[in-house]
Computed example of a mutant assay.
Amino acid sequence: MSQAAPFAVRFDPTNQELVLSGKIRPEGAAEIADALSLMQQSLERYSGVVYLNVKRLTHINMTAFSALADILAESCRTRPERKIVILTSSVMAWSTPVFEKLAKHYPNLTVEVYDSAFYPGQSFVEDEAFIPILRTQTKMTWRHERELLPRHGLRSGLVVADICCGIGDFAALVQREFKPSRLVALDHSVRSLDYARRVAADFDLKEIEYTYGDASQMLLRDNQFDFVTCRHSLQIFDRPEMLLRELYRICKPGGRVYITNEKNSHCLGEPHAETIKWTYEEVAKLFRHFDMDVEMGPKSRHLLADAGFDAIKVDTFMVTNLDGDPQDFADIIEAWENVYAGQMAVRRGDTPEFIRRFRQGFKDHVFAALHPKGYAGWPIWAASGRKPL
């Protein structure tokens, strides 16, 4: 390929988003045939809204643009019910007018200038600090969890509940890839559920039943779900045993409950291992101050056993800067810094000197994630237990 610099193309099913980046300057369309094929297949496979993200596409020549435009035009003509949103950036000043000119010819093709790293087109919740964290976290953990979930009992055709579903991204992925016969997703945040319903509508996922409710006192009948998930939630409850009792209650005998939790003090990075280690040990203390336990991961086995489950399975995996784009990992850490050092530590009353040192560990973790020879990790425990027959 005779390009001045390499380019990348990938499809992100979490966001239903095709991402183009780098410089695309082929001498002929055949040189980018694989990229064009991926684009065409993605547009054919998904319904609702599909995003074409060109925010990191620095250059494209007329050969590549013409081939890309032909695929977009054909898709718009053959599937008028499906919407394609092209995401451009004001940083790349050339891209917006070029794609807007194309969009004028097709009512189901639009251009959005959007410079946030957050989920495309959903800016109405950006002021809620945890939502962009959760979105990117799910994108990175899903690479591991979709392989683990069958080992823990998830398969097509089951009746599934996702408790503390938050913004609904995990439920959407389960619905799309595992095809449950029924999927109920419950959360206590009205705004998160509004977000989740909007995502489901955009992605044409009509089967998910989003439900408002308190996870510790759910208005769901006993023994009705084959598989119950509750991810990254027990660790933020001050009485996790109460929530586990409810998960046990709604699970069918013989069914399984699947939970994920962290051990934040084991986040790691190199270079600057020591400052990173110190900061995440302080994160664990900070959460304990607010009656939360982000060290819960290794405790999963005894928590499930104490709640009455048997046939317990436990897996661990490390989310790293090598899982896809290192910038995604860096984005998570920067978001953690903003919430933990910018809000929680301030609320606890920590001194400016402590907060400065606290922030430095996050900054060093970002540095490790983006360093060409660096390594950064975030450990997750995934565990499940069976409700006895």
Rank of each mutant, 00 (worst) to 15 (best):
K83P: 08
E112N: 13
T96S: 07
F118N: 13
D70Y: 10
P97A: 04
P132E: 03
A103G: 13
D127Q: 08
A69I: 03
L72E: 03
L134G: 09
L68I: 00
T96D: 12
F118S: 12
R135W: 15
L87E: 05
K101A: 15
E100D: 11
A73I: 05
F130D: 15
D115E: 14
F99W: 03
Y119Q: 09
N108H: 07
L109D: 09
R82E: 11
W94Y: 12
H105Y: 05
K101W: 03
L68G: 08
I133T: 14
Y114P: 01
V98K: 06
S89W: 04
T88R: 13
Y106H: 08
E100C: 10
V98I: 02
S75L: 02
L72Q: 11
V85W: 13
I133P: 15
R82A: 02
S75Q: 08
F124E: 14
A129M: 11
V113T: 12
Q122H: 08
D70K: 15
R79E: 00
A64R: 11
S90D: 13
S75F: 00
V113F: 12
Y119L: 10
V98W: 01
L72T: 06
K101S: 15
L109H: 14
T88L: 14
S66Q: 01
A69W: 00
S95E: 05
A103P: 13
F118P: 06
S75G: 08
V111H: 12
L87Q: 09
W94L: 11
T63V: 06
P132R: 01
K83Y: 07
P80S: 00
A64F: 09
V111Q: 08
S89I: 00
P107D: 02
E74Q: 04
F118W: 13
V85Y: 08
E81L: 10
L134W: 03
A103I: 01
L72D: 02
V125S: 00
E128Q: 08
P107N: 05
M62T: 06
V85S: 09
S75Y: 01
I131P: 09
S75D: 06
T110K: 08
E100N: 06
L87M: 11
V98H: 02
V85F: 07
S123I: 09
Y119G: 05
A117P: 10
V91W: 15
V125E: 01
S66E: 02
A117K: 04
E112V: 10
G121P: 00
E74A: 10
Y119A: 08
A93V: 08
W94F: 10
A117H: 04
L72R: 04
I131E: 11
D127L: 03
V113E: 15
M92Q: 12
V91A: 10
D127F: 08
P107E: 03
V85D: 07
S95V: 05
